Amino acid sequence: MKVLGIETSCDETGVAVYDTDAGLRAHALYSQIALHAEYGGVVPELASRDHVRKLLPLIRQTLAESGLDVADLDGVAYTAGPGLVGALLVGAGVARSLAWALDRPAVAVHHMEGHLLAPLMEDDPQGRPQPPFVALLVSGGHTQLVSVEAIGRYRLLGETLDDAAGEAFDKTAKLMGLPYPGGPQLAALAERGRAGAYKFARPMTDRPGLDFSFSGLKTQVLLAWRDSDQSEQTMADIARGFEDAVVETLAIKCERALDAAGCETLVVAGGVGANKRLRARLAQMAQRRGGRVAFPRPAFCTDNGAMIAYAGALRLLAGQHEDASVKVTPRWDMATLPEVV
């Protein structure tokens, strides 16, 4: 089955073709970072308009790179939520129209399920992770620990009570004067920081439970920054202290989640999943426990069409698809999804 995947939930336009026999055939991504940089964050209306401009050319490009004609597609998958309603409607409208014109099935994909399943696309010497496993979904909008009992059967173990980890990275970078989007730049700056020069709290690790909170950590960094000499080395040291605190907090909670779920396989996805120090720390933890941790390649940690094509292919193979109406769900609980059987 050859499935076209369309991702337009926020500020990146992603398109891919996934073939259930041959794997990922082609993918393309357009980022709107330059468009939103002068505003210091995503402007929903501008995001929607840019998806309108970029989506059809990206579909043509991706199909050409895959060696397929539009008539060769067996189905279309699109992100229906969660996300910005206008941006979602662009992808849903194009996907539904294309599916109707081709008389092919279309399936709505949950954005976070796409992230969760992204590591399963990768070739792994140990084989693709199979449920049951624990998933850490860690991005600019979400920080969640999920027990995956089967594809489509998810149980939330813990989530952030305020800022997501990626959001905390971006806001911390902004208060230190780094340009938008600051999270990746803060992580790069931390590479030059001295370990232990600044030590910040590991929020909510001194009590039981699997929820997260990063707003207090952000405040600690702000106070440290204001009281410092604000030199380049000090900035790097504070960035390192902040990153170490986030990474250690995530690792502690992941280990607790594995204990709670009674399994030794961890899957990590979302933009922060590309962080080198987080990958190394979680790999170390998994090795110590005799388990395993699986990541997608860094390019598939951020929003992309490949994860939507893959998740959609699984659901289309299971006979799931939508009617002809164009519907999106900006707020969508992943626990409500039907199981893939």
Rank of each mutant, 00 (worst) to 15 (best):
A224G: 11
A224M: 08
A224Y: 11
A224K: 08
W225K: 09
S228F: 12
D229H: 13
D229R: 15
Q230C: 05
E232N: 13
E232L: 15
E232I: 13
T234F: 07
A236P: 10
D237V: 12
D237P: 13
A239M: 05
F242H: 09
F242A: 09
F242N: 08
E243V: 12
A245V: 04
A245K: 04
V246D: 06
V246P: 07
V246L: 13
V247P: 00
V247K: 02
E248M: 05
E248Y: 02
T249Y: 03
L250W: 04
L250Q: 06
A251V: 14
A251Q: 12
A251R: 14
A251I: 00
I252W: 03
I252T: 14
K253Y: 07
C254W: 05
R256Q: 14
R256A: 15
R256C: 06
A257L: 04
A257T: 01
A257M: 05
L258T: 00
D259A: 14
A260W: 03
A261W: 06
A261D: 06
G262P: 11
T265N: 06
L266N: 10
V267E: 01
V268N: 02
V268W: 00
G271T: 01
G271F: 03
V272L: 11
V272C: 10
G273P: 05
G273N: 02
K276P: 00
K276Q: 14
K276C: 08
K276H: 09
R277H: 12
L278K: 11
R279E: 10
R279F: 10
L282Q: 01
A283D: 14
M285H: 01
A286Y: 05
Q287S: 13
Q287Y: 01
R289Y: 02
G290K: 12
G290I: 12
G291M: 11
G291R: 12
R292L: 03
A294W: 11
F295R: 03
P296I: 04
P296Q: 08
R297A: 15
P298F: 06
P298M: 04
A299I: 12
F300L: 15
C301R: 05
G305I: 02
G305L: 00
G305H: 05
G305S: 07
G305K: 00
M307N: 05
M307W: 06
A309V: 02
Y310V: 05
Y310K: 09
Y310E: 10
G312K: 04
G312F: 06
G312R: 02
G312Q: 07
A313K: 07
